[in-house]
Design a protein around this nucleic acid. Structure first.
Length: 584
DNA sequence: GCCGTTTTCGGCCCGACTGTTTTCAGTCG
């Protein structure tokens, strides 16, 4: 997408300008970059539809940046950016990706050692050249080497699915300390972002004993924290903040604040940064000052024991962490129009589970038992179909046989105390021409049909869009699985015209899946929001291939919450009868 | 370079920690 290319360039321009101590312009370029990144419409489309004027309406984009965007759309280049790079031929994005290196250091590394990329940097650090530079030392050199190692291993971010269990484990360990009054994950973990840079945990101390006592408590917590099992390095250990690296390769920060600061500190450390900046500007308009220690009128601190207090003083209702991205939630809160987003316990059944019929780990009966434990009212078996031979896909005959087995188990369950209803679906394959690999007569006998693209992912945009649209127009296809095909940190979405897909989905009453698998999360949050606004219904499914994957539903729900989805938007929050009636 | 119920100029979010220095700049979130 053009927007991401532009954003990358503007971030780099910001860094180049910062190197030269240019005031204020860097923030302006950063703001424009962020705005482009989060825009759902491609800049090329915006320009085509509304010309220069529409480009200037992008938040943070004025006349000068608009001209640069248009120059890029027309020529694929931006002269201003090229000139900056000519003046300083360094790979800015690559170098500033190293933890601890910012534009000013890049300037000095270039000035003294002619370092222009990561390779040069590593070579110079290994040769001990960096420690000799003014304002650098042995420690900076060591940190740079470790930063490079980290980058090589992890690309800097981790999946929420990998991090959340670890974060929960650490919080549980810390909870055993009697000095702690409150503890909560903060940062992007609390906002349930799909990928996480590091884990932030906020702690408040129990009261009593004066400042010496408080210091001793904080010391004890910090010592306990840096010696937790799995810690391989301590980056820093202070009175209020400590930071460690875990064996898995990511960092965890904890912050200790006094109890009376809990509300404002939790708000502050949950972020996002953009949400907080917008909130602080709102506070300033009300002649208030907002920081992690509270809300202040002149020098007077107003009571903010809880997050609710913080928002209330600024004149807003409390905002769910998943919404705090400065994507309109503050404006919605001002108008008291925040969505009532779906809760983590609102799912009544998972509609996309693979059984051992297609090579999954567990039998239909075992899946049903696990679903009862999850508190579900229904569970949908959706095995692969025959095109996916490698996944033991089922053909028409096997589907019929499976149907008989499900009926048998269903009637058996009806005699038990805990009732659950097993539905038969399938995850059929959308062929390159948009047809389905199972005959319509067989599809029509199932409770519902999921269809997904599993092959020829690199089709041109128009063809891929037509392919999915044809599948949606099939009267037997109810749900499109993982509709954009992305794999986080591995593979981009396939090229599709998502607006067109939404239009046909609405028209044909086709449901789009929110696949909960931690490396899919597809639809993603911004697409969920677009679908909701288009009036398209969605289903949150796990795509579990064994019963111990059923819990990943949490990540799909989180994604739905980040996409402002409400219960009415998600069909598997509905009771069984309403659900079955909605299927085509 | 952007922005506006303090509007077309004069502002622009805020604090902790580190590593290098002897008082602070740079980076980060």
């Amino acid at each position: 997408m053009t927007n991401n290319e532009l954003a990358k360039i503007f971030y780099e321009i910001a860094s180049y300008l910062e190197m030269d101590d240019v005031p204020f312009k860097p923030q302006a370029y950063e703001k424009a970059a962020l705005s482009l990144e989060t825009l759902s419409k491609d800049a090329r489309e915006i320009y085509k539809d509304g010309g220069e004027k529409a480009i200037e309406e992008i938040p943070g984009v004025g006349k000068s940046i608009a001209e640069k965007i248009i120059e890029y759309l027309k020529t694929g280049k931006i002269k201003y950016y090229r000139d900056l790079k000519k003046k300083m031929p360094v790979k800015m994005g690559e170098l500033t990706a190293v933890e601890g290196i910012g534009p000013k250091m890049v300037r000095d590394l270039w000035k003294y050692l002619k370092i222009k990329d990561l390779k040069d940097l590593e070579k110079a650090a290994k040769a001990g050249k960096i420690r000799k530079l003014p304002n650098f030392g042995e420690k900076s050199e060591q940190n740079i080497l470790e930063g490079i190692e980290f980058l090589k291993r992890s690309h800097g971010r981790f999946l929420l699915g990998e991090i959340l269990p670890e974060a929960k484990r650490i919080v549980e360990s810390l909870k055993t300390l009697k000095e702690i009054e409150n503890i909560s994950p903060a940062g992007s973990v609390r906002r349930m972002k799909e990928t996480i840079g590091d884990v932030d945990i906020l702690i408040t101390l129990k009261k009593g004993g004066g400042s010496a006592f408080a210091k001793a408590s904080a010391d004890k917590i910090m010592n306990f924290f840096v010696s937790l099992p799995g810690v391989i390095k301590t980056w820093g250990k202070g009175a209020t903040k400590s930071s460690v690296r875990l064996r898995q390769g990511f960092d965890v920060d904890i912050r200790v604040v006094p109890n009376e600061f809990y509300g404002s500190a939790l708000q502050y450390f949950t972020g996002s940064k953009e949400h907080n900046v917008a909130l602080r500007i709102l506070a300033i308009e009300k002649k208030l000052k907002l920081n992690e220690y509270g809300v202040f009128r002149a020098k007077k601190k107003l009571p903010t024991k809880t997050e609710e207090d913080v928002y209330k003083i600024i004149g807003l209702p409390w905002i769910e962490p998943e919404l705090r991205e400065n994507q309109g939630e503050i404006e919605a809160a001002q108008k008291n129009e925040l969505p009532k987003i779906i809760g983590y316990n609102d799912i009544l059944g998972d509609l996309h589970c693979h059984s051992n019929w297609d090579g999954g780990g567990d039998s239909i009966e075992e899946i049903a038992e696990a679903a009862i434990k999850m508190g579900y009212q229904y569970i949908g078996i959706a095995d692969h179909t025959k095109f996916l031979r490698i996944e033991h896909g089922l053909d028409e005959k096997q589907l019929l046989k499976q149907r008989q087995e499900i009926q048998k188990i269903n009637s058996k369950i009806q005699n038990l105390k805990s009732k659950i209803h097993i539905l038969q679906g399938c995850e059929a394959n959308i062929m390159p021409d948009g047809s389905i690999d199972i005959k319509d007569e067989a599809l029509a006998k199932l409770n519902y049909v999921i269809a997904g693209v599993h092959s020829q992912l690199k089709m041109p945009k128009e063809k891929m869009t037509e392919r999915i649209i044809r599948a949606m127009r099939n009267p037997n296809v109810d749900i499109i699985s993982h509709p954009t095909g992305r794999l986080l940190q591995k593979r981009d979405e396939y090229e599709i015209d998502f607006d067109k897909i939404l239009k046909v989905a609405k028209e044909t009453k086709t449901i789009l899946e929110i696949n909960s698998y931690p490396d899919r999360l597809d639809l993603k949050d911004t697409n969920i929001r677009k679908a909701k606004e288009a009036g398209v219904k969605m289903a949150i499914n796990t795509d579990a291939h064994s019963i111990d994957q059923l819990h990943v539903i949490e990540f799909g729900i989180a994604q739905a919450r980040r996409g402002w989805a409400e219960k009415k938007d998600i069909i598997n929050c509905w009771p069984l009868e309403k659900l079955l009636n909605f299927f085509k």
